[in-house]
């Protein structure tokens, strides 16, 4: 009887927005890590910088297409309503996307930059004035971008969490859950991209860096999902009822089997298995390509499912209709 106001486009957008935030964060972090003042993860940083803006740009496009009147999206920027997460989010998203594109530009090689500007008509003099080398700004841009990437990652959760009418969302853990899921999706996507790039094969220390990053983020995410469920069970009846959606209700299998097990615990196990000998036994890190590919793919799959479950189950949850579920 109930129709969903927000559908798959929103799920995809929330996933892509988070993905960009995670990519930017991982790339920016890689940019800062040096050994003896030499950037050891420059390749990771470059790959992340080149990838980061695209998912959020596509996601924003989808978001606009999802509107009832897509051409009215400019009205979002004629108002600023601090009580509306969507209003704050649309500004955050725009600023972040711009920063991510500038950061991409800062990571272009000279010949790539020249190639792009060779496609611009020579009469467009103002555009050609932008053909400058800003690679020395990389660290500064990354530093400015960090809060915005975190902001975008957390905003996708706040968008849902701020809705008091939906008890499945309206807990103070959803925002952090989405943030850490976004960050882990970002590092997994980066790992996947590096593994698939046959021209510049990934090096072992780079795999280790990204796998380690992902283990940290997945663990953080896991320790937010568990309290979300435990806390929810101890919360008011409406939240408890809402949780039946994933505890016996229609989203139980997709949550426990596909998201939590396949999308979170399995990749975590693979990554820990890969890291274990090098951390605890003093062996050298032997990253298996296949293992890393599987883990990264599963993390992305899980990140998408988390958004799917939350967008759909959240809309079903409510204060007065929950009784009908049982």
């Amino acid at each position: 009887m109930h129709e969903f106001n927000w559908g798959l486009l929103i799920v995809v957008y929330l996933f892509l927005g988070g993905l960009s935030a995670g990519l930017f964060f991982a790339a920016g972090l890689a940019n800062y890590l040096t050994v003896d003042d030499k950037p050891v993860y420059a390749k990771v940083a470059r790959m992340g910088a080149l990838l980061a803006p695209w998912p959020v740009a596509i996601g924003s496009g989808l978001l606009i297409l999802d509107l009832g009147n897509w051409y009215r999206f400019y009205k979002l920027f004629l108002h600023f309503r601090w009580q509306s997460p969507m209003s704050i989010g649309s500004y955050l998203l725009t600023i972040f996307t711009l920063i991510a594109f500038v950061y991409l530009f800062a990571w272009l090689k000279e010949d790539e930059r020249k190639w792009i500007f060779s496609k611009v008509p020579a009469t467009w003099k103002q555009v050609h004035r932008l053909n400058v080398d800003i690679s020395s700004w990389r660290e500064k841009i990354a530093m400015v971008g960090f809060p915005f990437s975190i902001g975008v990652g957390i905003y996708t959760g706040v968008l849902l969490g701020a809705v008091s009418a939906r008890p499945f969302w309206n807990t103070n853990l959803v925002a952090q859950m989405f943030l850490f899921s976004a960050l882990s999706s970002g590092s997994a996507a980066l790992l996947l991209a590096m593994l698939l790039d046959r021209k510049n094969p990934i090096e072992k220390h780079e795999t280790k860096f990204l796998v380690t990053l992902d283990v940290v983020f997945i663990s953080l995410e896991l320790f937010i999902i568990l309290p979300y469920i435990i806390h929810g069970q101890l919360s008011s009846q409406a939240v408890k009822d809402a949780l039946t959606l994933i505890l016996g209700g229609p989203y139980t299998v997709v949550f426990w089997v596909f998201f939590l097990f396949l999308g979170l615990l399995v990749p975590l196990a693979i990554e820990v298995y890969e890291l274990f000998p090098s951390i605890f036994k003093g062996h050298e890190f032997h990253g298996s390509r296949r293992m890393a590919l599987t883990a990264a793919g599963l993390v992305l799959f899980g990140g998408f499912l988390l958004r799917y479950i939350f967008v759909y189950a959240g809309q079903v949850s409510s204060f007065h209709r929950m009784g009908l579920l049982r």
Binding site: N5, L67, G68, N69, R72, S318, H320
Partner: peptide, 27 residues
């Protein structure tokens, strides 16, 4: 005239009192 049709209000309404006018693209 100001509604962009994002349907956030429909999601936020605890009473499901709103509907989406498909033709006009507004709530």
């Amino acid at each position: 005239d100001e509604c962009i049709g994002c349907r956030y209000c429909m999601v936020a309404c605890p009473y499901d009192a709103r509907y989406f006018n498909e033709e006009e693209g507004v709530v």
